[in-house]
């Protein structure tokens, strides 16, 4: 474990969709500037936990969340916390690339602008360039910034989404299976990018792909479901330990491919 203060801490998180208990008693600590992978079989609540971290679950009707998500020592579910501010500081990249139907430039600049950016056009240009460079996309798009973001390939679109996310200067980036809709080469580029980004950001990534978790992450959390289909945390530890020497037999069964 890192000695520095954790970037984020989940305490006794329970999530309900109506009567359905989706996630039970999850407690997790995400170390700063590290990549933490969340793995587990389908329906184990990986994405639910991820979306609880930046209050995206608030957008779903009937959802109920108990427990605490401590970000900088403050529970983001406290009534005096504005979810809009939380989402600016904890960015998100989705499974399917979802650029806005706007130009590449606008895709990156929009988030900056709506967050009240007060600066000259030149400063905004610089910010856009920085974000696109940060997402390893600048060289490919610098000559066509005003073409539609949808004209890019899938992998480029996903990197555009990452550029868009980092342009608003978040502290944590959540990634929900960011490479599952991409081909292997584009996947590798995203993984390289994640390693680069981890120098500046704390990254939490949900993935179905165990090789990806093993390749890219520093820590791994393994989730599973019980007989009522409620998801829960089985084991958390450094990635190397989880993949080579899991403590829990269920983790071992999963990573060796015996279920899930």
């Amino acid at each position: 474990m890192s000695d520095a203060a954790p970037a984020l801490e989940i305490r006794n998180l329970n999530v309900y969709y109506g009567d359905f208990h989706a996630v039970r008693d999850v407690s997790l600590t995400f170390p700063r500037n590290k990549i933490t992978a969340i793995i587990g079989p389908s329906g184990c609540g990986k994405s639910t936990v991820l979306r609880s971290i930046n209050r995206m679950n608030d957008l779903i009707p009937n959802v109920r969340i108990e427990g605490q998500v401590l970000f900088e020592g403050k529970n983001i579910y406290d009534p005096d916390v504005d979810p809009v501010e939380v989402r600016r500081r904890i960015g998100m990249v989705f499974q399917k690339p979802n650029p806005f139907p706007k130009s590449i430039y606008e895709n990156v600049a929009w988030g900056v602008r709506i967050n009240g950016f007060r600066g000259s056009k030149a400063e905004l240009d610089a910010l856009v360039e920085e974000a696109l460079r940060g997402a390893a996309l600048w060289d490919e798009v610098k000559d066509k910034l005003h073409q539609s973001g949808l004209s890019l390939s899938g992998g480029q679109q996903q990197r555009l989404c990452i550029a868009r996310a980092i342009a608003v200067r978040p502290e944590i980036i959540l990634m929900d299976e960011p490479a599952s809709a991409l081909d292997p080469i584009a996947t590798l580029r995203i993984e390289d990018l994640m390693r680069d980004l981890a120098r500046e950001y704390t990254i939490i990534v949900v993935t179905h792909n165990m090789q990806q978790a093993a390749r890219v992450s520093d820590y791994t959390a393994f989730f599973s479901t019980d007989e009522t289909r409620t998801g829960h945390l089985v084991e958390f530890g450094p990635t190397e330990q989880i993949f080579t020497n899991p403590k829990d037999p269920r983790t071992e069964a999963y990573i060796t491919g015996r279920f899930g």
């Binding site: 995206m56 957008l59 989402r87 960015g91 806005f100 139907p101 709506i114 967050n115």
Partner: peptide, 23 residues
């Protein structure tokens, strides 16, 4: 209008009104 578009905007720290008005 796809939900993914709304989510993308919300995830950048947009308010509901910004999501509606801009996207």
């Amino acid at each position: 209008v796809p939900a993914s578009l709304r989510e993308a905007a919300y995830a950048l720290g947009a308010t509901k009104w910004q999501v509606i008005w801009h996207h």
